[in-house]
Design a protein around this nucleic acid. Sequence first.
RNA 1: GCACCCGUAGCUCAGGGGAUAGAGCAGCGGAUUUCUAAUCCGUUGGUCGCAGGUUCGAAUCCUGCCGGGUGCGCCA
Length: 580
Amino acid sequence: MSGRAHERFPMQFPAEFLREQLSRLLEPRFGRPLPEPLVEPCGDPRFGDLQSSAALVLGRRDGLDPRALALELAAALGETDWSAPPEVAGPGFLNFRLKPERCFSAFAEMVADPRLGIEKTEEPRTVVIDFSSPNIAKEMHVGHLRSTILGESLARIYRFAGHRVITVNHLGDWGTQFGMVLLGFKRRGEEARLEERPLEYLEELYQQIQASAKEDPTIREAAKTELWKLQHGDPENLALWQRFVETSKVELARIYEELGVHFDFTMGESAYRDQLPSIVHDLLAASIARPSQGAVCVFFPDDPELHDKPFLIQKSDGAYLYATTDLAALRFRVGEWKADRILYVTDGRQRLHFRQLAATAKLWGMAVEIDHVWFGSILGEDKKPLKTREGKPIKLRELLSEAQRRASAILAEKRPELPEEQKSRIARAVGIGALKYADLSQNRNLDYVFRWEKLLSFEGNTAPYLLNAYVRIRAILRKAEASGLSPTAAPLGEPAEVRLVKLLLEFSPALRRVENENRPHFLCTYLYELARSFHQFYESCPVLTAPPPLRGARLALCRGAAATLGAGLDLLGIERLEEM
RNA sequence: GCACCCGUAGCUCAGGGGAUAGAGCAGCGGAUUUCUAAUCCGUUGGUCGCAGGUUCGAAUCCUGCCGGGUGCGCCA
């Protein structure tokens, strides 16, 4: 043994390898901006595994015959470690076929690594992810689902990539609604109900006061007085508010636990209330903000999109706004947490707000990257966003229990022999997993109409489908272990086997795509393909009853598939199951 | 009025310069003495909103139009 630390060579995946080979060939001749992506999976498997259209793009750029260029590249590249000599097809595609043996050896390397051959990033950054952010004193409803689930998944993905992730729940705990709630509670507050279900109760109080204020204007005034007292440090109101916040947090924590969602910090808007004057003061002093029509605004004259859209940070009556609080939170996160990057996971309707926030941060000289990870609204049957006011939005906890109820019903039919306790555990994982996956698997920018059947579907591209594949693999692996069988390296030749191996090698690029665009649905699409490929393998290739050298190799394949599928489910925030 | 998002199979959605546009659900027909059938195999179904343009190549990029949605200084 040498005295040096064990040197690890990063594992290489086929697309990366061919990409390097090609750029080594192309760069000296065509210069730096090479077409992207240089190498991509073949659209049609009949053409091969990977393809490059570099000759087409570069040929056009430099006025060369693309086909001749492709032939030239193919000859220069020839056979490689990973691939047979490339074929030239159509107008100038380069098609690559991977050598199965090379895929198998890479696969063996991948399975042996707990991280499945995926390196941690060489440039770890501190990434703050701001998500969920419900209002205190209001029930969580379906509208909060997307932010909560997307944020949690992104947090897991960035952590896995090797970044320092800080998740934060920026609670709406300091708004004008507290005037109403304080008044309501003082008039007819019921301790027991506040303890029992604070969110539901406080929301009810709010609505009652709101309704009676319509008929009796003095009530609105009374509420304003309560708010004023709260904001000016009245001990009684402050203490009551404190209780509202604390009891609400307890109830929220129950929901987050059920969802398997974790926050490093729960820091509501109230945490920044003392800093708001200084934010306005500092921005004024730096001439970033200026008074306008009695209020204080930041203007962006040099930004073509924002030049006519001022960012209002103080109202003419002296009160502060959402923008002010967000700026204070931003300053805190950059100053105290050393955030390099902040992801805000919210509704698409707030895009202007976050563009303005980012533009202000830039004027302020903050070296932080701000990404608004926005998503579309959940609509009602009438195609209008589900509103809290009129109509009744579906409460999140109702959605969660309905998800489990539906899973239980199926389970009672399929696995009557299981003990109740286990059935309810499985129903929970399946139901909530389905709910999460329904949101995660779709392009987040799209609006969608809320439908129980859609969110709680258990067939096709759904969490139960992935879980089913995972459970099947685990059953095989458990039985193998019980019989003392272990995975071995041996050649595999069935089409279903080869397809599965090649697909397993695409986990890493799939994750990269998720990171590039903050779109977990790319991972879902990949995992669905993987589960499908496994099911096909499962139908056509018996594992435990296969003859010895083959059996070991298939077991290895099962191990790799289980590890990858399992890792993918973890990254989505969906609980794995041994049985279902 | 201006800006942004969306429009793909009956329904829900992938694909966002690349080859003959894919899945699921629904429909139709099959597969179970076999490792979990919440599965698999086969099949029906398309003017990618419309019209131009750019390109060797457009569902994808540009322009215009139609339809739906959202935002645009004192809410969050």
